[in-house]
Amino acid sequence: MAEAALTASGYIKHHLQNLTYGKIPEGYDHAGSWGFAHSPAEAKDMGFMAIHVDTMFWSITLGVIFLFIFRKAAKYATEGVPGGLQNFVEWVVEFIDASVRGSFTGKNPIVAPMALTLFVWILLMNLMDLVPVDWLPQVAGVVGASVFGMDPHHVYFRVVPTTDPNATFGMSLAIFAMTIFYSIKIKGIGGFMAELTMQPFEAKSLPIKILFIPINFFLEFVGLISKPISLSLRLFGNLYAGEMIFILIALLFSSGIGLGIFAGVLQWAWAVFHILIVMLQAFIFMTLAVVYMEMAHHSH
């Protein structure tokens, strides 16, 4: 195990493994009891009943930071001359409000706050990618070894929650559930089913209509399901790729002074470029979520 951590592929694998907590499966030490997985295979064998502690920790921490700062500004919000924090928060809120107004025409008080939460939260989670890839995992290794008495090589730690498909799918599935809920609430169960089965192929006569139902349903269902999948995979894919490049650049640091300096320049350049991706992906995710909500509120 210690050997694996020193090779390039071991290093990469280590960086791509979440800190998984769950019931330790058969065939491993302490099988049957609850604990952290000691290897990627063990984490995989834990199955569904396990949780990525690092993903949850960072996403909740960042979300709480976001809510705390914004709540502080909102609590002392004054209609007079705003202070620095209020100014910043108002700037963000107005930006979100303008984008939501641009793509959402219905009346639903949940959409704009949802967009704000999505944008800032995802942005913060994405920004964790700019922290040099080894810093926080090293700290976690030291903490894990000294506080919890774990082997530092087995303390897996991924600091960017959006590189965990669980996080992105978690959000997109929640949005998917909301779009289904509001579709049924606004259009009724019949209207929702009609939207799934009566288009894109339409017909005047009843038999042909019935004939079209399975075809329409197949097409619309694929479209419906593809929304949350594409939404989450887009975010996950972009951030995962970005993180992977940071890891590959970090590998260069151990290859001599020349390559190390080159790696430093590369890391800086990629980080600058990555800021764009980080912002863009947060914005795209938010905008698409709003658009899906808009589609749920209006029949086309």
């Binding site: 009943m49 939460t117 978690g170």
Partner: peptide, 26 residues
Amino acid sequence: MNINLTLIGQSITFALFVWFCMRFIW
């Protein structure tokens, strides 16, 4: 890369955050 309970945890966290934002910030 395993899909597990984190998925549900993340959904609940997201819902709570949205609720808080809608109730206390927006």
